[in-house]
């Protein structure tokens, strides 16, 4: 297979040869690449790396120092004082991490289950009022969720759900569900419905056909959806504050309080590092699953 469809460009046809440089050339047999373009590529790549990692690296330095006099460019003394405070006996970090993980796991499990079912309907079924349904599912993307939480807080109070883990899970659930649904409908669209029908003709029941045929193909998608739902929950600050009333202390709440209230930059940086680790780790692990599912990332931007 040596031929390249000119139109399909299925091979890295050096095609679309950057047409920018076409000056006089002498005796060159080999494809010429303008110097500017050759340099621009690695430069842009390095800049992307710096852009993403740049602001996070000072956090890592700050977390290990307790003396960094202005205007020195490097800390004057390394220390674990920030960590001692962040993890020490008065600190509630461990508890906050446990709370965050608990809420995140519950939100992830519920949102993924709801999203997987709804995604199948969106991808495979003829639905009356489809446009309206899609609009409703997009609402949490556009409407700031705290507008909802402020309105609902009274109801949570009256139902005895305010200041409780259940309340916070319920408050975070709709946005996570909406994103999981949009994500899963994309995943379902990649599964051929004919395969389940084939399984049915071979004697599998509806549930069995799903479990044996579609589910294995969806596994990666479900992992990604669950991961995103978890991260949406892990990042949330204001909903937790409004419905949890400060009683339910998650990592973001602790971080905000430390950052705004304590002036202890080392402790703030240490908590921030703890808070940033799961998102980085999960995304790095799921990088392969993510390829080509960029819209999935919509939800985590917030």
């Amino acid at each position: 297979m040596t031929e390249t469809g000119l139109a399909t460009g299925s091979r890295p046809v050096q095609g679309a040869r950057p047409v920018s440089g076409a000056g006089p050339v002498r005796g060159a047999r080999r494809p010429r690449r303008p110097l500017g373009v050759g340099l621009a590529r690695p430069t842009v790549l390095i800049l992307t790396g710096l852009w993403v990692a740049g602001p996070l690296l000072p956090l890592a330095v700050q977390a290990f120092t307790d003396q960094w006099f202005y205007p020195d460019l490097w800390p004057n003394r390394w220390s674990l004082a920030g960590w001692e405070q962040a993890l020490g006996p008065q600190s509630r970090l461990a508890e906050a991490v446990a709370t965050s993980i608990g809420i995140g796991a519950a939100v992830a499990a519920l949102a993924t289950a709801l999203g997987a079912a709804a995604g199948r309907a969106l991808a495979w079924h003829r639905l009356p009022g489809r446009r309206l349904i899609e609009l409703v599912l997009l609402a949490p993307v556009l409407v700031p969720p705290f507008a909802v939480a402020m309105g609902a807080q009274v109801v949570y109070l009256r139902a005895g759900l305010a200041d409780s883990l259940t309340g916070v899970v319920l408050a975070q659930l709709p946005a996570a569900t909406a994103y999981a649904t949009l994500l899963m409908s994309g995943m379902w669209a990649g599964v051929d419905p004919a395969l389940e029908r084939q399984a049915r003709t071979l004697g599998a029941g509806a549930w069995r056909a799903f479990r044996e045929v579609s589910l294995p193909q969806l596994r990666g998608g479900l992992v990604v959806a669950a991961m995103f739902a978890f991260l949406i929950s892990w990042s949330d600050y204001l909903l937790t504050l409004l419905i949890g009333g400060g009683v339910v202390t998650t990592v973001p709440l602790l971080l905000f309080a430390t950052a705004a209230g304590s002036g202890n930059q080392a402790a703030t940086a240490a908590i921030a590092l703890v808070a940033v680790a799961p998102p980085l780790l999960l995304t790095a692990l799921a990088a392969r699953q993510l390829a080509g599912r960029d819209t999935a990332l919509l939800g985590v931007g917030r």
Binding site: P58, L59, L231, S235, F256, A275, V276, P279, L280, T283
Partner: peptide, 17 residues
Amino acid sequence: QLGLPVPHLIGAVAIGL
């Protein structure tokens, strides 16, 4: 992609520093 799921709150702390 790696940068995307970093919570804004952490971004704010980092940019603040």
